[in-house]
Design a protein around this nucleic acid. Structure first.
Length: 424
RNA sequence: GGAGAGAUGUCCGAGUGGUUUAAGGAGCUGGUCUUGAAAACCAGUGACACCGCAAGGUGCCGGGGGUUCGAAUCCCUCUCUCUCCGCCA
């Protein structure tokens, strides 16, 4: 959510900044309703003041046994008008809020302008894609060969875009989760959280998944609960409607969760394998920071996520998203893309964003330095550290051997109970 | 799922329709006293949000709605917490 005051006082600036997203945003309606709202508030507050004053007068007069019928009759009138204006204001505020919730975040000035993913900018690469002496297999073939991934049975039991992990596949998934959590808690200072996998509507609005993208989410029938599409939602909303102690910032959390995405519109892409599933595991990093540090914190967040790929020895690159590929809520976003041999290209495995105060406004998360200071909105950030299913896919593909076996990355061996290789 | 109890300012806690539209205490800030501190005493201080250039005003006693000239107080509804029962990993 943008600052309504900024829109009111400097609509041209907002318009110009938003135009970099190549999206048409109508601010005129907002400005019009906003002006109306303030007019009504001015009127109704005058009346309320009169009501308060006269109410006390009535009490006094009654005590003195004076006649108050006329005043009460008049006050009835005033009261009705107040109700009328309050209704009007409520209605206007509802409309204004709906508009505010549907306006995307303003891109940071350092974000390149673009109208498609073509204009995303590669920032750096790490590692060399391995030269295979044979034709590398796709991870779903490797997985089925070793009977560690089973998509067919998942189709029978649930439907398409679900998977069974079994045997060493299940163990590898679990090993990756533990490994990532351990690195982020012990080396990067994050506090581990295991959140609810369902949240109510207000939380989904708080982080920006709703109201615009309801068709992407799974909703539990007969309840107001949504399956979380990412741990970002419950973890960011942990501090909703709170005023945090500024001296305790930044707050850093790492959370494992299952993630559930319907992505109704995305059918047809990446239909095979683990890349695009309705349910997947993710280890998510979330930070609450002071505004002046948020861009430094974003760089650190990216580095923390990169660390996992480095420790696993998976080649990757970092890409800065252009304005068209930012998503609704981010002011700036980097993607980490891991090398996937069967795709013969880099594939997104993490997305790290600074939302500035966009989510903080929606979820009402503030901080205060001293007891006398005014509370201010925090900046929130998050990033995958990493998407676990895709990491498993990347491990299978990058570590496959000519004989069909898969070598377990050194750092994962302790988490695999000493197993160094998956083979038949 | 059933029954009951509760939700008040930073904290504790009073307050069942109007004589301060949040008492009293703690805390916090300043002062007196003291070599210093504590204690005591005196004074001040009540989150937060909105409107306004400002003065000031308005809202806020878990959320929302209603009754009334007037609601923390009465009514409806929702949420959460606690206790007991049922069910259950």
């Amino acid at each position: 959510m943008l600052d309504p005051r900024l829109i009111r006082t400097n609509p041209e600036l907002v318009r110009e900044k938003l135009s970099r997203r190549k999206e048409d945003v109508d601010l005129d309606n907002f400005l019009e309703l906003d002006a109306q709202r303030r007019t009504y508030i001015g009127e109704v507050e005058k009346l309320k003041n009169r009501r308060n004053v006269v109410s006390q007068q009535i009490a006094r007069f009654k005590k003195e046994k004076k006649d108050v019928d006329d005043i009460i009759k008049e006050m009835k009138q005033v009261s009705d008008t107040i109700k009328e204006y309050d209704d009007k204001i409520r209605d206007l505020e509802q409309q204004l809020n709906d508009i505010l919730l549907s306006i995307p975040n303003i891109p940071h000035d350092s974000v390149p302008e673009g109208d498609s993913e073509e204009q995303n900018v590669e920032v750096r690469r790490w590692g060399q894609p391995k030269e295979f002496t044979f034709t590398p297999k796709a991870h779903w073939d490797i997985g089925e060969e070793h009977n560690i991934l089973d998509f067919g049975t998942a189709g029978k039991v649930t439907g398409s875009r679900f998977a069974f992990f079994r045997g060493l596949g299940a163990r590898l998934e679990r090993a990756l989760i533990s490994f990532m959590l351990d690195v982020h808690t012990t080396q990067h200072g994050y506090v581990e959280v295991l959140p609810p996998f369902m949240v109510h509507r207000r939380s989904m609005i708080g982080t920006g998944q709703l109201p615009k993208f309801e068709e992407d989410a799974f909703k539990i029938e007969g309840t107001e609960y949504f399956l979380i599409p990412t741990a970002e939602v419950p973890v960011t909303n942990m501090h909703r409607e709170e005023i945090l102690d500024g001296s305790k910032l930044p707050l850093k959390y790492v959370a494992y969760s299952g993630c559930f995405r319907s992505e109704a519109g995305a059918a047809g892409r990446d239909t095979r394998g683990l890349i695009r599933q309705h349910q997947f595991d993710k280890v998510e990093l979330v930070k609450f920071v002071k505004p002046e540090t948020s861009y430094d914190e974003l760089e650190k967040l990216v580095a923390d996520a990169e660390k996992i790929l480095r420790l696993l020895g998976l080649p990757y690159r970092v890409v800065l998203m252009c304005t068209a590929d930012l998503g609704f809520t981010a002011a700036k976003k980097y993607d980490l893309e891991v090398w996937m041999p069967s795709y013969n290209r880099y594939v997104e495995i993490s997305s790290c964003s600074n939302f500035e105060d966009f989510q903080a406004r929606r979820a009402d998360i503030k901080y205060r330095m001293g007891a006398k200071d005014k509370p201010e909105f925090v900046h929130t950030l998050n990033g995958s550290g990493l998407a676990v299913g895709r990491t498993l896919a990347a491990v299978l593909e990058n570590y496959q051997q000519e004989d069909g076996s898969v070598v377990i990355p050194e750092k994962l061996v302790p988490y695999m109970g000493g197993i160094e290789r998956i083979s038949k």
